[in-house]
Computed example of a mutant assay.
Amino acid sequence: MSFRVAIFVVPVLVSLSVVTTSSAQESKSVSANENAKTLAGQPSRKPIMSSPKVIVFDVNETLLDLAGLKQSVGEALNGREDLLPLWFSNMLHYSLVETLAGEYHDFGDIGTAALMMVAEQEGIELTQDDAKAAIVTPLRSLPAHADVREGLQRLSEQGFRLVSLTNSSKIGVETQMKNAGLTDLFEKRYSIDQIKKYKPHPDTYQMVLDDLGLQPGEVLMVAAHAWDLAGAKSVGMQTAFVSRPGKTLYPNVQRPDVIVTDLNQLADVMAEAKH
């Protein structure tokens, strides 16, 4: 009798185990899918603190497509496009080194120096003139991402004041905006060369707040770089992350108030915020 009960119980337990495992896997799958939708396709609907008076935009990668610059850098490195992330991270790294050390060169000069460093590390011959030509001209001729002009126009029509804040030089950003056809959409174009400290140093964001005469909570910072938003958060700004391809959030700081895939989704979210 006990032998028959055991035979009956074992299949039931196995069946229950399969159901439990399947349910757990399904739950994990649903959770993963929801996270993927938030980061890869759907804007975060977490309400921002309040509707801002001014929206501040980062420029490079957030508004402008760096594909052309990356191509010219790859050509300067003998076609080694695999070295592009190393060059870009070096450029950002040494901009922060200069800020902390109390030094200042404009972003084009730092980009040129970073490119020469990578070339030397990899045994690639590259003159300073060739390195500068691979950086400065392409950097000032970047096209806007496809969603940018429409998204900015929608935000302007909603009544938001739009300004930009970039690590590029003042003359550099003026040229960038003109070549990208975006000059008319911005009230002001701020460059860190006005204060000679690179983002994400808090003083760069405070410079914008002081000039606008606004409190941090009245301003929204929009960027495709987690480090940029971390700096904005440090002074109390609201933040929005534009998840351009290849861009991810830094998990050790506060999450942005809004996460979108492009500026049209940002315009959708901000329309809701106003109501």
Rank of each mutant, 00 (worst) to 15 (best):
E61Y: 10
V54M: 07
A40T: 10
L63A: 02
D82R: 11
I7R: 15
R140Q: 09
T127W: 14
P138D: 05
P85A: 07
D82N: 13
Y198C: 03
A146Q: 05
A223P: 06
T239V: 07
G79V: 05
V56N: 07
N179L: 05
L162I: 03
L86N: 08
K196S: 07
Q254D: 15
M117T: 12
K274G: 05
L249D: 05
K37M: 09
V5D: 14
V73Q: 02
H93S: 11
V173P: 00
Y190F: 15
S169Y: 12
R189Y: 01
S31Y: 11
F241S: 04
E122K: 15
I259A: 05
V136C: 01
L155Y: 12
G172N: 07
S51P: 08
Q128F: 15
A32V: 05
S141F: 00
K28I: 04
M49N: 12
A114T: 12
Q71F: 04
G68R: 00
A6E: 09
M117Y: 15
T20D: 02
L16P: 02
T239C: 09
N78E: 13
D210F: 11
N90C: 06
D228V: 02
G79L: 08
Q158C: 06
M237G: 03
V14K: 12
L139A: 02
G231I: 01
L229S: 01
L77Y: 12
A113E: 14
G181S: 05
V163G: 02
I192Q: 08
T183N: 09
I171Y: 06
L39G: 01
K70Q: 11
G217H: 12
R255T: 08
A144R: 03
S191D: 07
Q158S: 13
A119I: 12
Q153W: 03
L83E: 02
A180V: 00
V19S: 06
L126Y: 14
L63T: 05
N179S: 08
E75I: 07
M221R: 05
R45W: 11
A67W: 00
D130S: 14
L66E: 00
S164A: 14
Q25S: 04
T21M: 10
V30Y: 11
Q128T: 12
E34D: 08
P200C: 05
G172I: 04
A134E: 10
E122M: 12
N264L: 14
V54F: 03
D257C: 11
F8T: 05
M270L: 14
A271F: 06
W87K: 15
I110C: 08
V5N: 13
S243E: 09
F107M: 11
D147L: 04
P138A: 06
P11T: 09
I135G: 00
S44T: 09
L69H: 00
K274H: 08
A67R: 01
L152E: 02
P251E: 12
G102D: 10
G151F: 06
H201E: 11
V30S: 09
K46T: 15
E61F: 06
G68H: 01
N252F: 14
R140H: 01
R80I: 02
A101C: 11
D58P: 06
E218A: 07
D184K: 14
F160M: 07
T62F: 03
N78M: 06
S51W: 10
E157C: 03
A134K: 01
A6N: 07
G231F: 02
V208F: 09
S17L: 13
A224H: 09
N60D: 10
H93N: 12
A131S: 13
I135C: 00
V118C: 12
D262V: 10
M116L: 15
F88R: 15
D130W: 14
